[in-house]
Design a protein around this nucleic acid. Structure first.
Lengths: 171, 171
DNA sequence: CGACACATGTAACACGTTACATGATTTG
DNA sequence: CAAATCATGTAACGTGTTACATGTGTCG
């Protein structure tokens, strides 16, 4: 529930209203994670239902803004989330993993073909990524996001190499 | 929708019934992805609704097994999925990324603290991972899964290093 | 004025997840 | 026989996603 918690983390900084949350969230995620505003409002409703945020009178004249502030419970949640380990040994519920694994334990030849195809796809993605990265060299958020993606693609490539080596007949 | 597609991929190999799908899926994912059987049946219903699978008479006496086979449309879907690029430039909708990014663009000091904490958590995860990996050295699936997780953790660590370097004041 | 950003919301849906209920078959 | 495995299903929920509707304020 990265959206829900992300919004809560933003509210831990200061009270905000829905539209602000959307803008801020998108700004900080380098504009690669467009958020439908509607989702923000429903998420806010759920957070309020769970007692993690509460509506407050907007300080400067409530035109038609519903401003929300985090509660104590909410702050506890955020702290717990932030100090929790990244994915805490959570297995990779990931498309690439499922694809390769299901094939690998089934038909080895098909698996090797699949791995080759995925590798070339990832390589071309990586190149496109590098170009986009240079273009956005003035935006810290975008830069970090692009780098995260690049690093992850490289990891996937390494994993594919390992799988291939492990599946090769000669052994 | 990795489960849905995973099950469909298994049916692309040969017709199976629900319980078989569950067992096979878990076996091939190294038993790190326990699947509630109920989910398999609801997923099968949705696949049937979408015309990607169809029920068939189980060849050897239908005791009370509902066997499903993949349809032509289903096969098309699987092929498209398997040949699609891993995450096709999809931005990382990931807990760690959200955590670090939201903090990084906000409070740099807090972000640096967060990064340090996450790094040590990931490092200890990595060590536990290595131990578990040796234990399961006879199970190909488990081995590949564990390796995937290790590689991914290393990638996250590298990304954290990069973020830290980028956020450090002296520059 | 018209377009665009700001601002709020509703409705519907897809997936994944868990809990729960039920029965047949095998095996110690 | 009792317990475990095999086998099928229902109900309910949470989150994320999209589409759609509505209205205000601002700026060229």
């Amino acid at each position: 529930m990265p959206v829900r918690r992300g919004l809560l983390a933003l509210l831990a900084e200061e009270p905000r209203h829905g539209y602000q949350l959307k803008s801020e969230f998108e700004r900080r995620t380098g504009r690669v994670w467009p958020l439908n505003v509607g989702q923000v409002y429903t998420t806010l409703d759920r957070l309020e239902r769970d007692g993690l945020v509460r509506p407050v009178r907007s300080t400067n004249g409530d035109r038609n803004q519903r401003t929300f502030a985090i509660t104590q419970d909410g702050r506890k949640e955020v702290d717990a989330w932030l100090s929790a380990s990244g994915s805490q040994a959570a297995p990779p519920r990931d498309e690439l993993f499922v694809k390769v694994l299901l094939a690998a334990i089934g038909d080895r030849k098909a698996a090797l073909r699949l791995i080759a195809a995925q590798r070339s796809a990832l390589l071309s993605q990586l190149q496109g990524r590098r170009r986009a990265q240079q273009a956005a060299s003035d935006d810290l958020a975008a830069e970090l996001v692009h780098d995260a993606l690049a690093v992850r693609i490289e990891a996937d490539l390494r994993w594919l190499d390992h799988c291939e080596a492990r599946l090769r007949p000669k052994r």
